[in-house]
Design a binder for these strands. Sequence first.
RNA 1: GCCGGAAUGGCGGAAUCGGUAGACGCAGCGGACUCAAAAUCCGCCGUCCGCAAGGGCAUGAGAGUUCGAGUCUCUCUUCCGGCACCA
Length: 849
Amino acid sequence: MQDRYEPQAVERDAQAFWDAQGSFNVSEDPARRKFYCLSMFPYPSGKLHMGHVRNYTIGDVLTRHYRMRGMNVLQPMGWDAFGLPAENAAMANKVPPARWTRDNIAYMKKQMQSLGLALDWKRELATCDPSYYKWNQWIFTRLFRKGLAYKKTGVVNWDPADQTVLANEQVIDGRGWRTGALVEKREIPMYFFRITAYAEELLAALDGLKGWPEQVKLMQKNWIGKSEGVRIGFEYFLNNKKQILWVFTTRADTLMGATFMAVAAEHPIATFAAEDNPPLKAFIEECKKGGVQEADIAQLEKKGMPTGLSVRHPITNEEIPVWVGNYVLMAYGEGAVMGVPGHDERDFGFARKYGLPIRQVIDTGKAFSTEAWEESFAEHGRCIHSGNYDGLDYQSAVDRIAADLKSRNLGEKQVQWRLRDWGISRQRYWGCPVPIVHCPACGDVPVPDDQLPVVLPEDLVPDGTGNPLNKRPEFVNTTCPSCGKPAKRETDTMDTFVDSSWYFARFACPGQDRAMVDERASYWMPVDQYIGGIEHAILHLLYSRFFERVMRDEKLIPGLAEPFTNLLTQGMVLAESYYTDAKGRREWVNPADVVVVRDAKGRITEARTKDGREVIYDGIGTMSKSKNNGVDPQALIEKYGADTARFYTMFASPPTNTLEWSDESVEGSFRFLKRVWAYCLKYENQDSTPKSAEQKAVRFEIHSVLKQINYDIEKHQLNTVASGAMKILNALERLEGCPEEAKEGLQILLRVLAPITPHVAHHLWRELGFGEDIMRAPWPDPDPAALAQDEVEYVVQISGKTRGKVLVPAGSDNDQTASIAITAMSKYIGDKAIRRTIVVPGRLINIVI
RNA sequence: GCCGGAAUGGCGGAAUCGGUAGACGCAGCGGACUCAAAAUCCGCCGUCCGCAAGGGCAUGAGAGUUCGAGUCUCUCUUCCGGCACCA
């Protein structure tokens, strides 16, 4: 074999071998256990970033490991190819989004291939291809006929200067990013998917997702947000006609403390009251300013204005004033809330600000004051100052009040969801067209199957002022599929989350052009292991769970509800950032161009650019263009090879943690692979010498590490798998002169490395004559004989403090173990009485004196 | 604001069920090899006291449970992810 480890040559050869063998192309095989391993497909933004490298390496390590375990493993790849960045790039470069996107796909595919990922490229798909999005449109028309897709108004960010709808990302400090104009809320007609119809099931099924992280399930549970409460009606008269203002509350027990009502600015009652009330009209206009992001709205200063109208308290008949509040969301519940300042923090603040009465109606056993809010005011307790309800606890009060309201048709118990229906319409060009034709006579008509797909013209370049599809009459003008008369095509496109809600099922069915999915999906689905960023914990994963149920109910994948059996949420990749400060102007310097000076203990004392300018450390954060702290995977692969990049990303941090990038540590990973190479060279040329006692200890160590590796890889803690490989090499280097043991250890090492650094493992395996293809070698398991020990080492503690170690013959019982320890520790015990002795078998003895 | 996480040496991290805190690596320091450098190899490496043997302290802060807490409970601080049109 070659003296020097040259990753480029090794990787080129290994990749050529896999290509020639078609190593990663798989098909259905009922004889073997199937395993579907999927990393979230990327948005083709231009080139791979380190987050991609990390994501796909994790998936690839698991894929290759399960293959070596004998399973039929599918690992496909595709492109989430519709979306906003392509339109932005199109505007900047005057190039159609389609071309930009396809160029990016071609480049990123090449990069993925250079990483040596075990992907079945025969299944590649891109969501912008008509052959894919046709089925978005097809399923939409099914849902539309069932009423699971429907039209209503929704609120969007409106840029009055460009006359266009903005994404939340395009609203910066309340202004349009291109125009700087103050953004307004605007209601427009949109299509929605009725995900709330599945709310109960989506919530209940979370319990069954044993392979999902608890934190993700908890976030989904809170997002769906089931709450049980009471819907309460407050009567009022409008033009002498009786009307009812409905609210929902989980605290019906505080009804007797309601002193005002607050409605959203868009609530019909507010619109009515504003007709002859100019200040109110102005206030409602003011509420329309700003974007629609909940994070912004929730942090607004709470403001309100009385409507001059009042409603009647359903129990006391008291007149209660109705206010418009900027903190009430029309999208949640009824768009109106009852204000109970005594027992709700927001209402308390509102009442204090506007001088509304604050009444205590719950006794929590703690002090109450109308001056300053205390957390205890919101606790459950017994009703007071509540007439007939005095003395009742929370549940009895809610039950009694709900019953009383029901008898008068002014309320009943109700389950309320935080989850809202999914608005899928986007007033954008680069997406899947919504397959609807608007006919003056027939209304909204879904496009019939034989006219699908509605193909998106690919030659348009958006200019930032609305959807360019509207400016293309050939697209807009059509005939009604129902009556044949002239009609207009819908120009909105679908939310790209629709595209990504079912792509995993489509991967199972390459070449299928007559159906959304076929029976092959039933073989491969569900995805056994899904891997992706924690930032997708709610939306993408929830929409996919919804879609799987929709597809189940369409009998597309019968019986399947959950798309992902096991979920691994990887952490983000972070890097340090540095800048030079020239007269207050920051110039960001790439960390690769910064030289640090350290003190004797290795602490950083100073940092400079390579040409000697002082730089300021700005802390650690996500890699971004604006801070110039990105690490280009391509440069890394060219310098060290894909195996080093893969090893480092696995070794540096457990998959679920954030990964802080360090160029120096990459060097260490490269060094390790060079040591593996050097060891193999030495192994080839070594002579046999007589066996020593060392050889048994080394063998014990290698098999112990392997046992730990197998435990760690099952729980996907891949950083300790990588460090386990290093430990095996450290042990092997002490084995000089024992060719049999060295061969066994080396074969273990290479097979453990095969999933992480597949190229070099493949090369060395063949080079040393261990076999044709390491991917076909079985995954190693530790030999119980190597793990057997004559004596077990125990830690001895005296009253919880570690004082030493003792060797205990294997097989000793607890009493024997304890007495050995007591004898050994006599100098600490002296004449003191032993109160008790705790023996943890195989580990520790604690003598309490 | 609301929901969910995280915090361990100079740095990344390890510690499986509550049982030796700091595995493995990076950086640093010392040495070998070399004319020299790079590469490579060997040794040291939480902190304080001590010549040493040894001992004290230490897992973001503060309390608690326990023979024993990085791990469990409560309170707090800081940072990160999400909040429905970035993907």
